[in-house]
Write a protein that binds this DNA or RNA. Structure first.
Lengths: 363, 363
DNA sequence: GCCTCGCTGTGTATCGATACACAAGTAGAG
DNA sequence: CTCTACTTGTGTATCGATACACAGCGAGGC
């Protein structure tokens, strides 16, 4: 606004402001960092000079360098960056993270991940004070890049190991609980699930096949669903897992349709997300099946779309978990337990609603 | 991982790596910034030493300071930070921004806005190379804070002025176009709109009342809707504007219900968002009204929920606009026009669908 | 009247890295 | 054999700000 003519886009330095105000640079510095440290008179002179010169305040990089703090929290998503804004669950989680950032007055830096080897460099070069890593695969190289920075870091929902605290729910126990509801009275159950690894290929597996699952979330939920089925006295081989490469409603619809219209169609579908579950409901409607009589369906996350659809689902507060992760990554004390609560919300897409409508869990 | 015992959390410096590798610091610097500038032999020594010491690469703040670039793009949302993740339209826009950031290898820093005076400081202290400002009010003080940084900046959808380019659609023309569809055959039209200013108070106005609207988006759309009504030969006083403080479906439902159940109920509702429009549809269902016969409804943005609801709406690509804003704020050349395209998508909630189903606009 | 304390302003020494210019060594042209 | 051109390694001088220690000064206690 009031930048002096001659150097139109040049940002003035603190020294220049000091010179114009007739004080030392340190006084200017204190005006910005510890206003109570300087006299009102001196502060006024400095502020006037700053306004005159159009000084926007201390240079962020210089301040960061000298102070040793960046003033921002890094968030790493294992996927393309825009994923965060496409996936409503990731968005919820980020809302929790951003709540904390706003309260603490720190920025929120999303580290762009593309899948290329350069991702590690991006992590290393991020000007942040800590990292929150959104759930990813066991072998994701950015995890090493994060630990190598030496900055405080937390992982949401796994993988474990590498010395980083993991914050989330007990996915296996939760899956066992909702699996019990989903599979009640079923003879041919199906799990509609997330990818096994970062290759994101389509699969159809049975419960007795040993298979390497690199995504801990997928693995834990699958184990939980299998627990639910086998603990009811059924053979693991009867349980199938349909792996959807992408967490999207159409993906769930397509895969579910295929199976429902094939020989040996499922009569119960437990999905790892509400999106996939809603796809299954669409497929059921298309196939003319009655829900829950012909087909029981459960989702996961209790998103906004679940209630209107009457979807039985597993509720967890991703927003709280995001907030918790942020606080932890910023080194703030937190009283929350690493294992968050969850509960089964029984609605109308399953055969035997829990008597109370709710099954809870925590750790 | 391989950090030497003794200084467990201390990040090694480039000088230390140089010492360990038996080369000069400059050589180490070149290994990271211009690998082709050093011999393979020297590079190998440096990489080995870096691995040994657990050197994560150049310190971001130091690098930024010296190079004069931060390597990140700042995004300012006029609201609380978590707003971005609650509002699906903001999320779409951010997805476009993040696409560009990922492609350009720069981070995406969300500047936390709380409404407090300290917001200006946060903007000034953000370590970024440019700003994208999500549409806000004319008198939002963060706009001045952004211009004061002297960094390249663009505003999405207004306000104009302050020397920052504005990227978006012609809201007034677009509103006039969809208003024509919404109000066709109507006698008592209503606009369901956004807040007038940052105070976010509830209002009910008529088209002949002069009123100060601080949000340019609200103002332009309202003017466009009024154009549609008056150009059809009706008196402005017959058009009403119901101001919803928050862009949420329940907000639209509540206000619409109130009016539909009152005396002089509207027979056409043009909403400034799909969320508000869906609220109006719910209110209509509750009131037992037939859509579009008893009540025509239009939305804005063509969000994912619009098509299933058969909602006539105004489509624009916020994702493209976000990408465009990001490129502009990073100083990248762009061939896109500042005025983006829009079109009316006529579905079943309006009385006279456009013959082609589509009305286009750009500038 | 002296001494201690609190308030303010100011030098000094970095924080960690990189742009730039220069020097040394090597290779190829004539 | 000399000269130019290219490769590759190395000092030097910052980038802009702040932690820290110290100095000057008026006030208050005994």
């Amino acid at each position: 606004m009031n930048r002096p003519a001659g150097n139109p886009k040049q940002r003035p330095t603190m020294r220049q402001v000091a010179l114009a105000a007739g004080v030392s640079p340190m006084t200017v510095s204190y005006v910005y960092s510890q206003p109570e440290r300087v006299s009102a008179e001196a502060a006024a002179k400095v502020r006037a000079a700053a306004l005159e010169l159009g000084y926007p305040g201390p240079h962020p990089a210089a301040r960061s360098l000298r102070r040793g703090r960046a003033g921002s929290l890094g968030v790493v998503l294992g996927e393309r960056l825009s994923y965060a804004f496409d996936d409503p669950q990731a968005a919820r989680f980020l809302a929790g993270v951003s709540d904390v950032c706003a309260a603490e007055g720190v920025g929120l830096t999303l580290v762009p991940i593309t899948g290329a080897p350069s991702d590690a460099q991006r992590v290393a070069q991020a000007a942040v004070d800590g990292f929150v890593v959104w759930t990813t695969s066991d072998d994701d190289p950015v995890l090493d890049a994060v630990t190598d920075t030496g900055l405080p870091a937390v992982v949401h929902a796994g993988p474990h190991g590498r010395g980083m605290p993991v914050i989330g729910i007990d996915d296996r126990a939760a899956a066992a609980a909702i699996g019990q509801v989903a599979f009640a009275g079923a003879r041919r159950p199906l799990v509609l699930g997330f990818p096994l690894d970062r290759s994101r290929t389509r699969h159809l597996l049975t419960g007795d096949e040993p298979v390497g699952m690199k995504f801990p979330v997928t693995r834990h939920r699958w184990e939980g669903f299998r627990d639910a089925w086998t603990h009811a006295g059924h053979p693991a081989a009867d349980l199938r897992l349909a792996v959807c490469p992408v967490n999207h409603i159409t993906e769930g619809e397509t895969f579910a349709s295929e199976l429902l219209e094939g020989t040996d169609p499922p009569d119960a579908i437990a999905a790892m997300s509400d999106e996939l579950a809603l796809g299954a409901l669409r497929a059921a409607a298309r196939a003319g099946l009655r829900v829950p009589d012909d087909l029981a369906v459960t989702g996961w996350d209790d998103s906004d779309t679940a209630a209107p659809a009457g979807l039985t689902t597993l509720a967890q507060s991703l927003r709280d978990q995001g907030a918790h992760c942020a606080r932890a990554a910023l080194g703030r004390p937190t009283r929350a337990a690493a294992r968050h609560e969850w509960h089964v919300v029984a609605r109308t897409t399953t055969r035997r609603p829990n008597t109370t409508g709710v099954t809870d869990g925590a750790a």
